[in-house]
Structures are given as structure tokens and as C-alpha cells.
Amino acid sequence: MLEKLERPDEVRRWKGRIPVSHRYTPGVAGDVFFTALRDRGVLLGSRCDSCDYTYVPARLFCERCFAELSADAEVGPGGRLVSFTISYTGLEGEPLEQPVAIGLVRPDGADAAIVHRIVETGDEPLEIGQRMEVVVKPDEERTGSIHDIDGFRPTG
């Protein structure tokens, strides 16, 4: 029943795609988070007192105890570098002209961390645990997007 393929290029195939795209809206808590980022340039988290945990970005509910949370805990702008990587290749594996540093940063006052670019790296090598600071775009350039944050920069 199984037949060895002598000419794989002659296998009958039908090309196609799944014609969908998506529009993601950020939801109840996300709406508050992005509005505050756009209008005030701040990071909003949500604090669960009973679990002693502060989420960032803000969330509608605590996944640990299911309590409803408010998006009112301002965190940062300082923070600590939890981990980082430096990427030398793009999505298709092609080399990048300029390597990109990606960091996981825990803003001050938060228990959760945020992933974003690391900017203004300078000459010093990055170190896990070092102090960082969020860099937001100027007021007039912010639109309510994760790109309203340029990234995190080392501060020492």
C-alpha cells in the first residue's frame, strides 16, 4: 500500500492558505492599562492583597484566588533585569544587521515582569539583577500601544 516516492517533486499537492487575520482588543483591564500609558506615560498594574501579588500589565482578576482587581497600582518606572537575550537572527533565521537585546524586567512595585526591548545598552555588558528604567516615547507620539514604550534602559 505504501509506495516509495521516486520523484518527490511530482507529488500532487494543493496549495492554499487559511484566509484569516485578527483584530485583538485589549479587554477591560487592558483598556485602562493602555489609556494610562498613552495619557500619562505610566505602567499600571493590579494588586491582589490577599495573594500579596502585583500583576503588570493590569488584570481584571487574580488568577490565584479569582478576586476582582482594580487597574490602579502604578509600578516602575525603575525596575530590575530578570533575564535577557541578544538576538542575532530574524524570524526566518537571517542575520540581523544590528543585534537586538530583549529583556524581562520586573518594575519596582510589581511581582510580575514585562518583556520588551533593551535600549541604550552602552558598552557595559548586561547583568541579570541590574537596575533598569522604562523609556517611554514623548507625550505627543504615544498612541496607546506597547510601542509607546521604547524599551528599558540600564541605569547602573
Binding site: V11, R13, R17, I18, V20, S21, Y24, T25, F34, S145
Partner: peptide, 23 residues
């Protein structure tokens, strides 16, 4: 107009083999 909304297309393409019987 939702603040923070993002659009993405799934950029996946396929080549479906007909297989033995349907081939």
C-alpha cells in the same frame, strides 16, 4: 477605535499532499 488594539494576519501557507488514494 479601541485603545491598544492590534491587527495581525496569520502568515501561514500550506501545501496539502493529495496522498496515495486521492493522488
Amino acid at each position: 477605535g479601541a485603545v491598544g488594539a492590534v491587527d495581525h494576519a496569520v502568515d501561514a501557507r500550506y501545501e496539502w499532499d493529495a496522498g496515495v488514494a486521492v493522488g
